[in-house]
Design a binder for these strands. Structure first.
Lengths: 110, 110
DNA sequence: ATAATATACCTAGATAATCTAGGTATAAGG
DNA sequence: CCTTATACCTAGATTATCTAGGTATATTAT
C-alpha cells in the first residue's frame, strides 16, 4: 500500500488477494488494478509487495499458477485459488471481523 | 498483539492507545489491561510493544508523562493526551474508517 | 516468615510485512 | 521512433511488533 497507509493496516494483503481470486483467476498486474478500483483508490499495492505475496501463497499451496500468452503475445501468470486457499480466506475473514469489531469498540469511546 | 494477530492488523496500536487516553490519563500497565478488557481479549499487547510506543508518542508530543507513586509505594508513569494527540487521533480514526470500509468492500464479494 | 505471583517499568535484538528502487522485456499509442 | 503502459521479477531498507530478557516492589498464599 502507499506509505501513509503502512501506519494503519498492513497484514491483510494476502487476504484481499485471496478474496479477489475467489471470484475468478487473475494475473498479478490485474490484481493490483482490481484492488485499486474496488477499494476506490485506497489500496495501491506496489509490485514489490504483490509478487512476493503471490509467490508465498503459491508455496503454501493456497493458489496455483499457470502461464498464458495473450493473442498479442503478452505473457501473463494466472493465479487460481485452491480449496486450502478458500479455507484460509474464511479463517482470515473471521480474524478480520474479530479484529475490526474490537477496534471499533475501542474507538467508540473516543 | 498476540503473534497470531500480526497477520491481521499491526499498525493501529498507537491509535488505540490514544483513544484510551482521550477518556482519561493512564499508566502503561493499565493501558494493556484496559485494551484487553475493552476488546474482549482480542488485544493482548506485550509490554515490549507498548512501552516503546508510549515513548515515541511522548517524543512526538502527542502525550505527556508524569510520575506518581501510589499510597503503597508503587511507581507509575501516567500518560496524558495533548491537543496534538487529539488531532492525531482524529486523523488516524479517519484513516482507519477509510481503510476498513475498503476492506469490507473487497470482502463483500468473497 | 518466606516463597510465589502480580504489578510496573524498561531495552536489545529478532522477525516479518511492506516499500523503495531498481531490473528485464514486449505492446500500444503518439 | 519514442514514450508510456503492460507484465513480470528481486535485493535491500524500513518499520511494527514480538521475544526474551532485565530490575524492583507489593501482594497473596503457604
Amino acid at each position: 500500500m502507499a506509505r501513509s497507509d503502512r501506519s494503519v493496516l498492513p497484514g491483510s494483503t494476502a487476504m484481499l488477494v485471496l478474496a479477489l481470486l475467489k471470484a475468478r483467476e487473475m494475473y498479478g498486474y490485474e490484481i493490483i488494478e482490481e484492488l485499486e478500483k474496488r477499494s476506490n483508490q485506497v489500496f495501491q499495492l506496489k509490485e514489490g509487495t504483490l509478487y512476493p505475496i503471490l509467490h508465498s501463497l503459491e508455496k503454501e499451496k493456497l493458489v496455483t499458477a499457470r502461464d498464458q500468452e495473450t493473442p498479442s503475445g503478452r505473457k501473463r501468470r494466472y493465479y487460481h485459488i485452491t480449496a486450502a486457499g478458500l479455507q484460509a480466506l474464511d479463517a482470515k475473514k473471521e480474524e478480520w471481523q474479530t479484529f475490526s469489531q474490537a477496534v471499533t469498540a475501542i474507538l467508540a469511546g473516543a
